[in-house]
């Protein structure tokens, strides 16, 4: 649950203790609605999609800011949730399933946008790549491209720690490695981003 407390915080606000219990409530509610939707309950499905729309929008806005991107990505994420709805297992947690889809769509969309937009690399973007939540929109697009260029394990390390906002320990748990290995991955990922920006090959 800890991995998604941040999302819950942006969804429901409140103190960390309240966030935990409210996140649990959200989790249970969404899981229940999706289970009912899988049985054909249109009302439960409509309510779920309405609530997910707001949650996804807040999640994306807190990370990307760009209104157009958030709007487009929210719609694509809802469509993806709709297409993947039969794969949700009500015995498992809903939020990892949901946010895996949202992250996948966000990366997909960013990749497509970067292809469309010509963004001049700037050494200052190094920090944006390491922490895209603090960068303006164009730099975030560049950051996404830089993340995509990394080896998956380094990209995941940056994503989990700098975009998901997990601690080193939480990210290590999620990736199935030791905290020191995760720390090394984050360090190497940032170094690789710097090298990529400088036009050098990845290590």
């Amino acid at each position: 649950m800890a991995a998604y407390v941040g999302d819950a915080g942006s969804l429901v606000g409140g103190t960390p203790d309240r966030v935990d219990s409210q996140a649990d409530l959200l989790e249970a509610r969404w899981a229940d609605w999706m289970a009912r939707a899988q049985g054909g309950d249109a009302d439960a499905y409509r309510t779920l999609l309405g609530e997910l729309q707001g949650a996804i929008e807040r999640y994306l806005r807190s990370r990307f800011g760009d209104a157009d991107l958030v709007e487009e990505c929210t719609q694509e994420s809802l469509l993806a949730v709709h297409r993947a709805r039969d794969t949700y297992d009500p015995k498992r947690r809903f939020r990892p399933w949901l946010f895996t889809i949202v992250r996948h769509k966000a990366i997909d969309l960013l990749r497509r946008r970067v292809v469309r937009e010509v963004v001049r690399p700037d050494p200052d973007v190094v920090e944006a790549a390491a922490d895209p939540t603090h960068a303006p929109p164009t730099e975030r697009l560049e950051a996404a491209r830089l993340l995509e260029a990394l080896e998956p394990k380094y990209r995941d390390a940056l994503w989990l720690t700098k975009i998901e906002g997990l601690s080193i320990g939480e990210a290590a748990d999620q990736a199935g490695v030791t905290p020191s290995a995760m720390k090394t991955r984050v360090h190497r990922a940032i170094r690789a981003v710097r090298k990529n920006l400088a036009g050098e090959p990845e290590p």
Partner: peptide, 26 residues
């Protein structure tokens, strides 16, 4: 929620069908 979003969600809800019983990974 704006009207276009309502329409979008209504469209998705309109396509809802019960999940086939056999459609579980196992």
């Amino acid at each position: 929620m704006s009207a276009p979003h309502d329409d979008f969600i209504d469209g998705l809800v309109g396509e809802l069908k019960p999940k086939p019983k056999w459609l579980r990974p196992i």
